[in-house]
Design a protein around this nucleic acid. Structure first.
Lengths: 244, 244
DNA sequence: CGAACGATTGATTTTCATCAAGACCGGTGG
DNA sequence: CCACCGGTCTTGATGAAAATCAATCGTTCG
């Protein structure tokens, strides 16, 4: 009964060779792993774990087991503050590492869910710690990834603390654009996997304000929107909007 | 010429025994270092580096050399976005580690300055990486410290994205209170080392709004302010303000 | 002591949230 | 395939929160 088996204990993880677009390959390349190191690394990775739209990757309060790299798809992470309000702390796309908010306490602080059907690769955190002691270049890469998350968060603090609504939206679009471009996808034409409500939550604004800002940027000829599809027409002037 | 020597190459660092309140002792204790490990660790630490009020600990753009733990005093870190605006990303007190924003790129992203005369202990980052490979408990502690910074930043995102002015100020005060208390100082009666302007900048508000919020919390009998001296009269109700 | 900076308080304006109505879109089932 | 339904998005009208402008007072430090 294969179904039962997939539920109670996952199938043996496929190897890198079965997971051609695995985003941990980026890690192994940057860290310049030797063949042996590569094998040790690969042994610890659980490849191609699928997540359906709306499915949880992890829930706030649960113990940290694995960190995940996104292979394909899109995730969001959000914190529930002690009254009911939800605050989205990040949107994640292929290549991004999720779960780092659990490292301090050993328990996840965020609910992380799939915004669309996604594929992830996981590595048990204890294994990553062990490996990064043995492989200095991996240690450096991991530390840099944690540091990059800190910098990303500081950027959000600047956005939330100092920018007006339209500037925030312009920055949000440019940020997505840059990240898509880095990943070899179009940075000028892309699909937003999240709702206006979710964008607003992330940017500290209401969904109406997001809608109005997008309309206005459209009126200015800087972007074209059709629902969740965005085309950036003038990135330079959009950047000027950001800088007021 | 001692002066020349202190400029061009620092005096031999004092040891832990010369730096009785050194906040790296907390690290060595949590990591349960053996005597040998302790010696290796201490060897890498530059103890008791003094910083005068307004002096820089590091400047944005400079290369990361050392991370610093605050021994006494108070620091602020701020980012200058590409137009002139400054955004304060954190206030740091004894026991806090500063410099982590430089790990991702190897260059500092923040200006970090002393709000009052302060004493720091530094560890060369490369040495910390090396030691944390050799001493797993130190590696864990360091990773947890990075993770804690991420969680702190997420907390700020919630504050900036979802809270109204008075809630932000109440949360700010309670946060300071808690941190003072943990350090064995009074959590009810303390001195704010930063200006209203700086509080406002940090909380995404203007100095006038900070002043008004403090006055109003005073009218409600939750706090007493006299200039930069704060007394928290009713922490429980202050917490209720935070949760709206 | 006085000058410069910091804090408070009030009046007014701006920005964005809220409330409300209708349009659009995507998925589902007939 | 089409019609319908719920969720999403847009747009407008109004209101509330905080920013801005301005005047005064307090305090700190040369």
């Amino acid at each position: 009964m294969n179904n039962v088996r997939t539920i109670h204990s996952p199938l043996p993880a496929p190897l890198f060779r079965d997971c051609p677009d695995c985003c941990f390959t980026g890690w192994s390349q940057r860290a310049r792993l030797s063949a042996n190191e590569f094998r040790s690394f690969d042994d610890q990775i659980e490849h191609r774990r699928p997540k359906k739209k709306h499915e949880f990757v992890h829930r706030a309060g649960t113990a940290l087991v694995s960190l995940y790299v996104i292979n394909s798809g899109f995730l969001k992470a959000s914190i529930n503050d002690n009254n009911g309000h939800e605050q989205i702390t990040g949107f994640f796309m292929p290549g991004d590492l999720v779960g780092m908010e659990a490292i301090a306490t050993g328990k996840h602080q965020c609910n992380t869910t799939a915004l669309e059907d996604s594929s992830l690769c996981g590595i048990v955190f204890a294994s990553l710690e062990q490996l990064s002691r043995e492989i200095p270049s991996l240690q450096r890469d991991f530390n840099q990834t944690l540091g990059a998350e800190i910098n990303r968060d500081h950027g959000m603090m600047v956005l939330l603390g100092a920018m007006r609504a339209e500037e925030r939206v312009a920055m949000f679009l440019l940020n997505l654009s840059r990240r898509f471009a880095i990943r070899g996808r179009s940075g000028t034409c892309f699909h937003l996997p999240m709702t206006r409500q979710e964008i607003g939550n992330y940017l500290g604004l209401t969904l109406e304000t997001i809608s109005r800002a997008l309309s206005h940027l459209g009126d200015l000829g800087l972007i074209v929107t059709r629902g969740k599809d965005i085309e950036i027409r003038d990135a330079a002037r959009l950047q000027e909007v950001v800088q007021h």
